[in-house]
Simulated scan of single mutants.
Amino acid sequence: MTAIILQSKITCPNCGHQKTEIMPTDACQFFYECEQCKTVLKPLNGDCCVYCSYGDMPCPPIQQNKTCC
């Protein structure tokens, strides 16, 4: 069994700012506000959360080959 990685580095597509965040394990995160430019990120079509769209690691349920929220 592979360990689940709970940290993901989110990159803002608007300004390029990056920040490492801890992903929730009990809920999807649909919105994320970039602390630099204040753009509110939403998941891209086909993705379940902002980590799957803009992070360097997918969310924990996707890492476990499960469906996300």
Score class of each variant (00 low, 15 high):
1 M>G: 07
1 M>K: 08
2 T>H: 08
3 A>W: 10
3 A>N: 15
3 A>P: 13
4 I>A: 04
4 I>L: 06
5 I>N: 12
7 Q>T: 15
7 Q>E: 15
7 Q>L: 14
7 Q>P: 08
7 Q>Y: 11
12 C>E: 02
12 C>P: 07
12 C>R: 06
13 P>S: 03
13 P>Y: 14
13 P>K: 00
13 P>M: 11
13 P>D: 06
13 P>E: 05
13 P>N: 06
14 N>P: 08
14 N>W: 09
16 G>Y: 02
17 H>S: 06
19 K>M: 13
20 T>V: 10
21 E>P: 04
21 E>Y: 13
22 I>C: 12
23 M>R: 02
23 M>F: 05
23 M>P: 06
24 P>G: 08
24 P>W: 14
25 T>D: 11
26 D>K: 09
27 A>R: 14
27 A>L: 15
27 A>I: 13
28 C>S: 11
28 C>W: 13
28 C>D: 07
28 C>V: 13
29 Q>P: 06
29 Q>G: 05
29 Q>R: 13
29 Q>E: 09
32 Y>H: 07
32 Y>P: 01
35 E>Y: 10
36 Q>G: 04
37 C>P: 03
37 C>S: 04
38 K>I: 05
39 T>V: 12
39 T>C: 08
39 T>P: 02
40 V>F: 09
41 L>N: 07
41 L>A: 06
42 K>H: 15
43 P>A: 08
43 P>T: 02
43 P>S: 00
43 P>D: 00
44 L>D: 07
44 L>Y: 07
44 L>I: 12
44 L>Q: 11
44 L>P: 04
46 G>F: 02
46 G>E: 02
46 G>N: 04
46 G>H: 02
47 D>N: 11
47 D>Q: 05
48 C>S: 00
48 C>Q: 00
48 C>A: 13
48 C>H: 09
48 C>M: 10
49 C>V: 04
50 V>A: 05
51 Y>T: 02
52 C>K: 05
52 C>D: 01
53 S>V: 05
53 S>F: 07
53 S>M: 05
54 Y>S: 01
55 G>V: 01
58 P>R: 11
58 P>Y: 07
59 C>S: 00
59 C>E: 03
61 P>V: 09
61 P>H: 00
62 I>V: 14
62 I>D: 09
62 I>G: 03
63 Q>W: 05
63 Q>S: 02
63 Q>G: 01
64 Q>G: 04
64 Q>R: 12
64 Q>W: 08
65 N>V: 03
66 K>L: 13
66 K>D: 00
67 T>I: 00
67 T>Q: 09
67 T>K: 08
68 C>L: 10
69 C>S: 09
69 C>D: 08
